[in-house]
Design a binder for these strands. Structure first.
Length: 477
RNA sequence: GCCCCCUUCGUCUAGUGGCCUAGGAUACCUGGUUCUCAGCCAGGAGACAGGGGUUCGACUCCCCUAGGGGGUACCA
């Protein structure tokens, strides 16, 4: 049977690392087995205003490179893919259960239920529905109807063990008496979450339900629905919950940063994909820096742990850097161009040189700004730190020697610049700080930054030599 | 309150009864890369939550406790 997975967020807000990890595993597993990845929005409970959230989610998925085979905006044979557009379908299925005697109409109002729950809580009793409408005589039903009560439809949950399986945890059992009769259709006709999910997953022919462990306790209820509808449940895989750094659940104040923010800071999307798949999973090879292709080939449902992992921002940044190091110059150049060209009015050769240097040092794309900020603007030679360096006795001589040697260069490459610099150092007989600082200060107006040959390489021969000559003048003065 | 799940270095993890004086990665510390920052390279320190069992032998199996996560809704 063809593997079909789905990602079913409710379009309330942005995707965060926790949601995204669920999407990632569903996508990876589908791709690994040549299956289909379906997107579905669970929006039954929401009013409008979700349109922007829908787009935000799709955007985030696109950024991570998780393409959908079916879903909103792309369509597919099992649509519609928004629960709000499937209301009649849920109604039909609920009625099927009703006529089969597996469900019944419950005339209790929300208020009555709440009062009973409060009482139960007060005397420390069971909070569950007491089943009072299970077998209502026809006359009573008529009377309730006459009173204007709108019934909800409840599913009969009989006492006794309910067995279900989770791929990660194995066979599990709960008891029907701990669940109670479940509302599947509210009195206003909208389905409840657990019922809608089952109807959708069934109709969409989902084979593997991969979702957060928060749904573990919903699973037995859903298994009951599958059976009642005459179907076998799919395989359930409950991924451990992703926790915020320092523990605790992902929340507004801790770690629930939207994916958009990671995109803006400039994390490599493949690194985020890589990082997320490494939560609860590890490659049998023990490797951790895994390309998109390797992830698609290797990530499977075996080797999934059961403990809740915490996000480690530092490791994610490190991975991002690793992915940039392996990125092609051409691709990185495109990413960098979007952030730097206008802001620093870069030319083609400058951008290329910058990309070559930056590829070896950035962790996230925004690191590039700092480097540009430091070396691209005309250096300010008037600040005290720079003045101090330039006033050293040998500074003028050092800068002049470097200028002379570099201006004689036939090839302006990082390598030739570096070799030439080393030679000058030996010739002049000055080394360390005394040698490098005057050159650095002259070139950037700072005494801290990337390697000098790299700076010269990015600036290009003309600008480098011009700055150096100005430095000689300043040092001589 | 009741029910369910989880528990190896700070963090992510390897480990399925002896291969473990517990391996890797990150973070941290130190050194190197004839200047600095980042990067990179090398080295160092760092864990089986606690207590009972089972066994010739437990990180690995069972029980209890603690801690964490989730559920108990006409929320999703």
């Amino acid at each position: 049977m063809k593997v079909r997975t789905r990602f079913a967020p409710s379009p309330t807000g942005e995707l965060h690392l926790g949601n995204a990890r669920t999407a990632v595993l569903n996508w990876l597993f589908a791709r690994r087995h040549g299956g289909a990845f379906v997107l579905r929005f669970e929006d039954t409970d929401l009013e409008r205003q979700v349109a922007t959230a829908e787009h935000g989610i799709v955007r985030a998925l696109d950024w991570l490179g998780l393409d959908r085979d079916e879903g909103p905006f792309v369509g597919g044979p099992h649509g519609p893919y928004r629960q709000s557009e499937r209301l009649e379908i849920y109604g039909e299925h609920a009625n099927r259960l009703l006529s089969a005697g597996l469900a019944f109409r419950c005339y209790c109002t929300t208020e009555e239920l709440e009062i009973r729950r409060a009482e139960a809580r007060a005397r420390k009793g069971e909070l569950r529905y007491d089943g009072r409408c299970r077998d209502l005589p026809r006359e009573v039903e008529e009377r309730f109807r006459g009173e204007g009560r709108r019934p909800s439809i409840r599913f009969r949950v009989d006492p006794g063990p309910i067995r279900y399986a989770d791929r990660i945890r194995g066979e599990l059992t709960v008891h029907g008496e701990e669940i109670g009769d479940l509302v599947i259709l509210r009195s206003d006709g909208r389905p409840t979450y657990n019922f809608a999910v089952v109807v959708d997953d069934l109709l969409m022919e989902i084979t593997h339900v991969i979702r957060g462990a928060g749904h573990l306790s919903n699973t037995p209820k859903q298994v009951l629905f599958y059976r009642a509808l005459g179907a076998e449940p799919p395989e359930f895989v409950h991924l451990p919950s992703v926790l915020a750094p320092g523990g605790g659940k992902l929340s507004k104040r801790a770690g629930a940063t939207g994916l958009r923010a990671y995109e803006e800071v400039g994390y490599h999307p493949d690194a985020v994909l890589n990082y997320l798949s490494l939560l609860s999973w590890s490659s049998p090879t023990g490797d951790e820096i895994l390309s998109r292709e390797r992830l698609m080939a290797e990530v499977d449902l075996d080797r999934l742990g059961a403990a809740n992992p915490e996000i480690d921002p530092a490791k994610m940044r490190w991975l991002s850097g690793q992915h940039f190091r392996r990125e092609s110059i051409e691709r990185l150049e495109v990413d960098l161009a979007g952030r730097l060209v206008d802001r620093f009015s870069l030319g083609e050769t400058e951008l290329r040189a910058l990309t070559e240097v930056l590829r070896e040092r950035i962790l996230v794309l925004s690191d590039a700004n700092d480097v540009c900020e430091l070396i691209l603007p005309e250096p300010d030679l008037s600040n005290s730190a720079v003045r101090e360096v330039l006033e050293e006795p040998h500074s003028a001589r050092v800068v002049a020697a470097v200028t002379e040697r570099w201006s004689a260069l036939e090839q302006w490459t990082r390598e030739t610049l570096r070799e030439a610099l080393l030679e000058v150092g030996r010739d002049v007989g000055i080394k360390g700080r005394a040698f490098y600082h005057p050159v650095r200060a002259t070139l950037t107006g700072a005494i801290q930054g990337p390697d000098l040959p790299d700076i010269a390489y990015i600036l290009g021969a003309e600008r480098t030599l011009e700055r150096l000559r100005r430095g000689i003048a300043a040092a001589g003065a």
